[in-house]
Nucleic acid binder design. Structure first.
Lengths: 330, 330
DNA sequence: CTGTTAGCGCCTTCAG
DNA sequence: CTGAAGGCGCTAACAG
């Protein structure tokens, strides 16, 4: 910039004004500045220097944690990002995907991201990446959970929703089962009866599991006998395999509550139980006549972005509903 | 940082070293620094200041232009982003979605993005957003097109691929037609015979159209009589409507070459022609037995990111193939 | 192993 | 309408 100023025969301030307050500079100077800038290949103020000076970056950071590696394969995560991106574009904020998901350096990378606030995608209570975001004292909005002091939480009442859809899918069932997301960051795949919600590290998964248990108890079912199939990823093919193992262990299972439509689809394809419910009410749920918990991840993404930018947060706890379809007896 | 230095009774450099080269600082000083940092709520060096000092941001900018508004609804764009994100995560680079898509300010926003290089998603020859990226003198990688001096282009030979799939779908057809992406940034929807490829502003669309024309000419078909349906977005529902208009104007159409699987799906649903081909070979193509041009957008995304970071670029021109399925007679 | 000096590029403040 | 001074927070280079 000082180069341009020198070459144009003006002070650096005139150059700065030319870019930031063109109206405060005479047309002559402005033209001269812009012309010499073009000649010198100067494209305007340096963004980093500007951020340093302003103390703000006009950028929102999205932390997907280890989920980043497959976030773009998860239609729900994509919807969420679409909501974030929408608000960012409207307000002129950049959307920075923080490069996590590959190991120990994740917290450092979070801390050293040049952003004004963080949006953290559903994670565990003990995720170091969340701690890192909080340690920066920049605003942190968490989607789903965990709830943490000093952060804003955006998400639905997963327990209540699970209980409601559980009541639907388990009704008339003699042997209910559950298809679940991972219980901790190790993401093991396994099948075990009566998984205790309190041992689950992801609040969202914990709450949904607890809600399904509520529904089972409401129907007089002994939770300790309810098989729970845990899937590493939100993927129909894997769910199908897990469902196969689940049915091998408990062939009389006749109803499955799944934590996503993808998992539910896997259950359907495994060809076992009569009644199945999903979650998210994606296109695939409609196509397969799947009873599901409808929620708008896109809207929640937008809400997270707005909250991160300091807007008052709308409460999303009740922003869900059960959509009944043929898969639970229509 | 100087606060921490003062409080810890050391110089700022010791604090800096503590974070950047811990091994060069005695364990004592390091502990003291980290402890007082924790007390003062100092979370480490400021990223903006660091970027300014280093002259690099360790961030890649992705410019989706006006496409941003629906990029996350386009499965192919999402695939592409997944590839970019993968490389970014591996190398510890942030992935910044530049907030464009809402109007005149787009170029400014591009210029003032704190990134080391740009990846620009397929656009028109005259897109000001591309010009803005180039004006910064930072490396620019363009996906699809246009080709421009000083930028790197990653993409397949669209014309060759279109000619090949056109030969397949138009073979035995008496009245071929085309379903196309928009011809310019106004994104009008219309149906018109013999659209001249040279009038199309998007190089990718232009090349595909030219390739379809090649295929038609190869079969002795008069291009000026080939109806072309142009769709605003990459959406099956819209394609279906456009296909309806196309069939109303030319009821004898019996083969449609579509520029995406989504558009092809719309053509199928419109219930008209016998033969249909798509593009991208997405899941939906497999499910519907759709002949399609297979290419890996994910891989191309990864290639763009690698190129933006200075890696030598692999040539992707021939990284496509026609997958024949039932929709063109098996 | 630790401190000093200098400056990355910009813009707010205050004078002309 | 334009300019001079100062500092945002950091670290390379060079002492000590």
């Amino acid at each position: 910039m000082s180069d341009v100023a020198r070459a144009a025969g003006v002070s650096p301030m005139t150059v700065s004004y030319t870019y930031n307050r063109p109206e405060r500079v005479s047309a002559d100077s402005r033209d001269k500045v812009l012309r010499t800038a073009a000649e010198l290949g100067y494209a305007g103020p340096d963004p980093s220097a500007r951020s340093l000076r302003y103390g703000a970056t006009r950028t929102l950071g999205v932390v997907l944690g280890e989920h980043l590696t497959y976030a773009f394969d998860d239609p729900q995560a994509v919807r969420f990002l679409a909501g974030v991106a929408e608000v960012c574009a409207e307000r002129g904020y950049g959307l920075l995907i923080v490069p996590t998901g590959t190991g120990d350096e994740d917290p450092e990378r979070v801390v050293s991201a040049a952003v004004d606030a963080y949006i953290v995608w559903t994670t565990t209570d003990d995720d170091p990446v969340l701690a890192a975001a909080c340690s920066t004292r920049r605003p942190v909005v968490v989607h789903g959970g965990p709830e943490r002091e000093g952060t804003t939480l955006v998400g639905i009442d997963n327990r209540g929703a699970a209980r409601a859809v559980g009541a639907e899918v388990f009704a008339t069932a003699r042997r209910p089962a559950v298809l679940s997301f991972p219980v901790d960051r190790r993401r093991d795949t396994f099948v075990r009866p009566g998984v205790d919600p309190d041992t689950v590290a992801y609040p969202v998964t914990r709450d949904r599991l607890a809600g399904y248990r509520d529904a089972a108890l409401d129907l007089g079912v002994d939770w300790s006998e309810v098989p729970v199939g845990v899937c590493r990823t939100n993927d129909a093919a894997e769910a199908r395999a897990v469902m196969g193992r689940l049915l091998a262990a408990a062939p009389d299972v006749d109803a499955v509550a799944a934590m996503s439509d993808q998992l539910a689809l896997g259950a359907l394809r495994a060809g076992g139980p009569v009644r199945v419910s999903g979650w998210d009410d994606a296109d695939v749920a409609r196509e397969h006549g799947l009873t599901s918990v409808a929620q708008s991840l896109r809207e929640q993404g937008a809400a997270c972005a707005a909250a991160a930018l300091g807007d008052p947060v709308a409460d999303h706890r009740d922003a869900w509903r059960v959509v009944r379809r043929a898969s639970t007896g229509g």
